[in-house]
Design a protein around this nucleic acid. Structure first.
Lengths: 234, 234
DNA sequence: GATTCCACTCGCACACTGTACGAGACAACT
DNA sequence: AGTTGTCTCGTACAGTGTGCGAGTGGAATC
């Protein structure tokens, strides 16, 4: 009568894995390969089973349902991000900056993660490790109490909010590859009646898309870090 | 031979809608009701058809596919956000702040939008209207050239990145309602071995969840605005 | 008034999804 | 030898988006 358990993979022990060869890790690895190759929609239990020379429903021995599997691969994403330990960096800004760049890079490298990353609570060991390191970094910076969390959340929110649309753009381009020119024409047509937008569209003409985004990210990141620093000195 | 068109609802004229009663608008309205009631997964063409006393496939006369329908309801979301015109506000900060609050409020009111909002290019009339107003506001603030876009993107990125996890938390809670207490216990158990996290978890004990998030949002927003202002004066 | 045409509706079918169920296979322990 | 527990998987079910093609009703044309 103690109420329902919070249902997450991380609240349950994994199957012992007496390991003939199939195990949770194996499944997660195969799932990530499939995700990298075919995206979030490309992952189905049947395909994953086939990839492992197993029946689709065999996987349900190791994983309660597909959502649990996604929780597992999701945490793997956090494992690929780097938060440099304080010894390696002089200022907290350096740590924060390195993390932000790494987070963006990981998401862009695994575009399917953009569809997962804010969507499920991040309670896996890797996510907690990152959260812990980030916490320590901001604490070292001088933040106190809840503001440590606030600062960390602000940073990750910026990266998330920036990267998700980037991924969306990339995927729209991938499934419907059209040259820069006609894309621009389409957007221009849609922007008719919004002179401000058209003007800025023309300004960016010569620049490469990825380069513009790089600059945008650098600009926003600098602003966020400045903003956090400002919260610190008052 | 001019290459493929960019495929988006906004690139095509809507069906003339001789309107016996069924029309694009009607369908979009019904879709939003269904989404508000049952969430993103609750929207299926069959259910939507039933709600309109129509066969599922009848809708395909007005909409090329489900994705197009989602593009339409997605733009509706932008229509509910408010960007106060410059006359009504004294500083750009006020405009930006009002927009950010409004954006967050709209997303929280239509949680399903969190699954759409960064995922598809925002080329609908409402989205462009918002983008235009935002552009003008930041131009008025003193930003120039591409930095106008950068500033606007930074702001929306922050709101997006903050709100998506909020929605995720709300939905996890909704489908698996457990009291604050056992939730905290679960998270504490997961955080074992991360003293920094545990410490902060305990600090936030008395505070209400929604209140904490409100404070977090205010903190982050102030930081972002400060950061943007800093970019401006240099 | 008859005919043609077109806007529109919708039942059926197809390929696909996640996963509950229960029957079997194999190894280890009693 | 028998029992138990771990693990595999075929089958089945309810659900999805949507292509196709036949059907309907009203307006326009002859």
């Amino acid at each position: 009568m103690t109420g329902k358990q919070f249902s997450s993979v991380w609240m349950r022990e994994p199957r012992p894995a007496r390991t003939p060869g199939r195990s949770r890790e194996e499944i997660v690895r195969a799932a990530m390969e499939l995700l990298d190759a075919e995206g979030l929609d490309g992952l189905s239990m049947r395909k994953l089973g086939a990839k492992l020379d197993a029946g689709a429903t065999s996987l349900y021995w190791y994983v309660a349902n597909k959502h649990e599997l996604l929780e597992l691969v999701y945490d793997e994403i956090w494992g690929e991000m780097t938060v440099p330990p304080p010894e390696e960096t002089k200022w907290w800004r350096q740590t924060a900056r390195a993390f932000a760049l790494s987070m963006r890079e990981v998401i862009l490298r695994h575009p399917w993660s953009a569809g997962l990353i804010g969507r499920t609570p991040a309670l896996g060991p890797n996510a907690l490790e990152v959260a812990g390191r980030l916490s320590r970094a901001f604490k070292g910076a001088g933040f106190r109490g809840l503001e440590i969390d606030y600062a960390a959340s602000t940073l990750t929110a910026f990266v998330l909010g920036t990267t998700i649309p980037e991924v969306a753009y990339n995927e729209a381009m991938a499934e419907d590859p059209l040259d820069e020119e006609s894309m621009r024409a389409a957007v221009e047509r849609a922007s008719a009646g919004h002179p401000d937008l058209l003007e800025r569209l023309r300004e960016s003409k010569p620049a490469d898309t990825t380069e513009v985004r790089e600059m945008m990210f650098a600009f926003g990141l600098a602003a966020v870090l400045d903003g956090l620093e400002a919260r610190l000195t008052t």
